[in-house]
Design a protein around this nucleic acid. Structure first.
Lengths: 221, 221
DNA sequence: CCCAAAGTGCGACTTTAGTCACATACAGCC
DNA sequence: GGCTGTATGTGACTAAAGTCGCACTTTGGG
């Protein structure tokens, strides 16, 4: 499978472009695929391209010297990443890993800048994406700084449940820990406690929310 | 004192505009002043305007239900705030407070959108600002999630020393705590410990860095 | 020059989070 | 259908961060 106008148009980023413009953009796009677990790019590297997620999920994260990870964002189809370093020509601020098998469309740095300048609709899409990410990150900062792991986990479970169906891969405790800025054991213990309190039920693979209002209270929503 | 083309041009945001364009913009700008400690805007409110710092320092922060603060950013002259909610028309993501006596230039939401659309140089400035903030916030997230208070404080002291001269107001332990996502007592204890280890000397008003390499090691730089 | 308010220092304690070390459990494969 | 990673559950412990309480100090107005 290779780059098609159809799939390109389905990316929110390009949905506003005319047929001609799309064709022009398409000529600059490279399709790339990654196996689950593969690293797409590393923080600190010079940015090569902007990436658009077509299939699968991508995990954007940072690694501490001691090897702990903090997930900044998980992206599904339609998501974009590596925009910031391409725009300001600094090093990549975070690493990206294929969380499932993934197909992305990549546009080279220089080509992207070119078409972004040419098509105001694209520039607008860039703006929208950046503002959304700033909001998300503000929320994450508040969480990390002002909330307990229990509250963060409660919130994660609630949002996770919402996007349950869409998610093609079940989430491990290790992964929850990376998203919440803590370690696996703490997640395990906290899940056990939430279960003891009757708010959730931990089954084979999934976690079932028993007392949603109770969980929401913990999440401080 | 009121809005002048001179001061307007000194804001990086507008430095690229022609004299005519500046004049056009200036007609939409309102000068406002705030006393140290005054609240400029609150998170959750509907955004009224974009603000440009002309004199003084502004503190952007979030408040937890229990009253703890996390500072997201401190802005000096040339800084911009409240851009995100104006662009996406959502609620203000954070509160802003005058950290010293402050003069700002404000541009109404609708006017700002108008001129941002009209002048590509402005749109570019918006982009630059957003990318910078995303980088900053990524770094803050990593700090909060993956580093100890001691490491964060060491880093704060180093950067603080760098901008020592420019800073018109000395920083309290309370404020350091708000910036590092912790509480006053912890800052006090950690300062005492750094002193015991001979890395800094805590004097009347200021903190003197005795062993910069040592501090840098703590900061994991 | 005095006084209230704001800022510090510090000890004792609690709570939360992180570490270590294993013992299962389970899910796919060959 | 046994084997091998990968994922979990758990207990005991350490460390880091946060809470409480209160005395002391500085500072900036009046």
């Amino acid at each position: 499978m290779s780059v098609t106008l159809e799939t390109l148009r389905q990316l929110p980023f390009f949905s506003k472009l005319s047929q001609d413009e799309l064709a022009e953009v398409a000529s600059q796009v490279h399709e790339r695929t990654f196996r689950r677990g593969e690293i797409i790019l590393l923080e600190g590297e010079a940015p090569e391209a902007v990436y658009f997620v077509v299939h699968g999920q991508v995990r954007i994260y940072r690694l501490s010297p001691e090897g702990r990870e903090q997930v900044l964002k998980r992206l599904g189809p339609g998501g974009v990443f590596n925009l910031v370093p391409v725009l300001d020509d600094g090093p990549n601020p975070a690493s990206a890993m294929a969380w499932t098998d993934v197909t992305v469309y990549a546009i080279e740095r220089s080509h992207f800048m070119q078409i972004a300048r040419a098509y105001p609709a694209l520039a607008m899409a860039v703006l929208t994406d950046l503002t959304t990410k700033l909001r998300d990150m503000t929320a994450l900062i508040e969480d990390l700084s002002l909330r307990t792991v229990e509250a963060r986990l409660a919130r994660l479970l609630l949002t996770q449940a919402a996007e349950e169906e869409a998610s093609p891969r079940r989430i491990t405790q290790q992964e929850m820990a990376a998203q919440l800025g803590t370690v696996r054991e703490v997640i395990g213990r906290t899940l056990a406690e939430l279960q003891r309190e009757g708010l959730i039920r931990v089954e084979r693979h999934r976690i079932i929310i028993v007392d949603r209002p109770g969980l929401e209270a913990k999440a401080m929503l």
